[in-house]
Amino acid sequence: MSLFKISPYALKEKKGKETIVAVTAYDYTSAQIAEAAAVDFVLIGDSAAMVMLGHEDTFSIGMEEMLLFCKAVSRGAPDTLRIGDMPFLSYQVSKEQAVYNAGLMVKEGRCHGVKVEGGEEVACVIEAIVKAGIPVLGHIGLTPQRAAELGGLKVQGKTLESAKKLIKDAKVLEEVGVFGIVIECVPAELSKVITEKVSVPTIGIGAGPFTDGQILVFHDIMGLLKGFRPRFVKNYFDGFNTFKEALSQYVKESKEKIFPSEKESFSLSQEILQELLVD
């Protein structure tokens, strides 16, 4: 694996030339599938708190858990660009702690860069991480770690004031050295304006078709989560019901003694069997 071949900054060359497609994944198996599908990069998101651990929000996950998910994805997608999500309180306390934790993402989690939520308010932290030699992916719009401040998980940038702030945030992030910016749950027209005003790629999730790239969670793409489908998600597979039907069939066949059959069983030689029966 060549670090330069999959450098985050290689994505900047795709802006305006090729749509960037990414997926958020958390484990070895989904990472294998993502790599086989040739996504441009895999984000190991702090949304693992909800998708993998069953929490109600992203606040509950810490560095130790994130590193486990990052390591799993790195083994499943060794030749794909991997970006680790900095969890809540891993970068808000101090620049020094932020750089240290970002370093852990790279050194122990085997990520090629990190994602940091926020705009102008976290610019100094992002700048410090970049100066330490760690690539950073920005994230503006709906930032789940600031859900309480934003009034919940809802579309951002719908007023003139908030739209101007998002444009300013994007420009500030560009200035401090991010290699790209995730734009989440923002009106499509505003995402287009932001995309045109910055030289780094924008990656949209619930941000319309005008960004430089798109990202969705693996489990959302596969329809694996029961009763969960935000407006911006498109299920490409009915995973929950398909898997449920398969598992139900396994339960049925096991109870009816159909499974395992001779085909799924191992046999003992008749000679040895006779000896055992005699004893």
Rank of each mutant, 00 (worst) to 15 (best):
V23P: 11
I6N: 13
S30C: 06
K14Q: 01
C70S: 10
G54D: 01
I20Q: 06
T24P: 01
L53K: 13
A38E: 13
A49G: 14
G16N: 11
E56W: 02
M63P: 06
R75W: 06
S30L: 00
A37R: 15
V51Q: 01
V23F: 01
C70K: 09
S7N: 08
D40A: 02
R75S: 02
V23Q: 10
S47V: 04
A37D: 12
F59R: 13
A22I: 06
R75K: 06
E18K: 13
Y26P: 07
D46M: 02
L67K: 15
E18Q: 14
L43H: 04
F41M: 08
I33Y: 14
I6R: 15
E65L: 02
E13V: 05
G16Q: 02
V73G: 09
Q32E: 07
I20G: 14
I33S: 09
L53D: 15
A36L: 01
S60P: 05
Y28P: 09
T19Y: 07
K17D: 04
C70L: 15
A48H: 11
F41I: 04
K15G: 01
S47M: 01
D46A: 10
I44N: 10
S74Y: 05
L11P: 03
E65W: 03
A22E: 03
V39P: 01
T19D: 12
S74R: 09
T24S: 00
M63R: 07
A48Y: 11
Y28K: 09
A36D: 07
S60K: 14
A10G: 02
